[in-house]
């Protein structure tokens, strides 16, 4: 029993140190709740608004998923273009990557919002082209440029000796890429790709600036409607908490994958 006790007491400070950040955050929240807020009038409207907030956040997630999906498809195509031995094919890919990697997200979102019409005519029918879809495109552009760059980096990280070995066995260039290089790239691309997804997800917060009814926009409306300082602080803290709850596990999982990859 004595040993168990001593073991426990030795493990406890270690655990404290490892989770110091979380414990501090929790303590701060408790102090704030106890000291600052008269809970009743503030929490009741938050409860009322929470379905609208969650609906807004669902739109953020939808935009982020579509943007990363579209950006990945586009980015892989552009990345393939950048691997071409022909300079003429590499040039447009290079321009695309440089242009969209080096532009602020907000500028690209304004760009896609005002460049595209609000409806598209397809075979005599007018299809609506809503703002949230335009924002998705605005985020897919930088996503594609970054995916292309991640792809290029992964291919470049495969040692030249793999190419040489495959060439010595009589493989052609395209065969080497498909059968030898790309399968080895997937694992290396996953961590930076997930990192990019977290960045894109956080970028969806900008959608509110062009009038998309996302989480931030809903929070603004709620704030103006309730018009109470305590509530304003609380609702933005909730918004923060929602984004954190979604993005933090992604970044933790990414770090786990990176560590595992480093040992292989």
């Amino acid at each position: 029993m004595a040993t168990e006790l001593s073991l426990g007491s030795r493990a406890a400070p270690d655990r404290l140190r490892r989770h110091a950040g979380k414990i501090l955050a929790l303590a701060a929240l408790l102090v704030w709740l106890a000291a600052g807020a008269p809970p009743r009038e503030v929490f009741a409207p938050l409860w009322e608004w929470s379905p609208a907030l969650l609906k807004g956040f669902a739109l953020n997630i939808l935009i982020s998923l579509l943007a990363i999906g579209l950006g990945t498809l586009l980015g892989l195509a552009i990345g393939a273009l950048n691997l071409s031995p022909l300079r003429l094919l590499r040039l447009p890919g290079w321009l695309w990557v440089q242009a969209f990697r080096n532009a602020p997200l907000l500028v690209l979102i304004y760009f896609t919002t005002y460049v595209f019409p609000f409806e598209i005519r397809v075979a005599g029918h007018y299809l609506p082209f809503p703002d949230w879809l335009k924002v998705t495109l605005g985020l897919a552009l930088p996503a594609s440029a970054n995916v292309a760059e991640v792809f290029r980096g992964a291919v470049a990280s495969i040692p030249a000796t793999q190419w040489e070995a495959a060439r010595s066995l009589g493989f052609g260039r395209g065969q080497i890429l498909r059968a030898i290089i790309l399968p080895q790239c997937c694992k290396r691309m996953l961590p930076p790709w997930m990192n990019l997804y977290a960045v894109i997800t956080m970028g969806t917060a900008l959608a509110s600036l062009v009038g998309v009814h996302d989480l931030i926009d809903t929070a603004q409306i709620a704030t103006n409607t309730v018009n109470r300082v305590g509530f304003t602080v609380l609702i933005y803290a909730s918004v923060l908490g929602l984004f954190f709850a979604y993005c933090y596990p992604i970044s933790r999982f990414t770090r786990y994958l990176e560590r595992r990859h480093a040992f292989q």
Binding site: T161, Q162, E164, A165, A166, R167, S168, L169, G170, I180, Q184
Partner: peptide, 14 residues
């Protein structure tokens, strides 16, 4: 290269 085998110092397996 179909006719000539090559074995490398660093093996270079896939």
């Amino acid at each position: 290269r179909k006719r000539v085998g090559f074995v490398f110092q660093q093996y270079n397996l896939f």
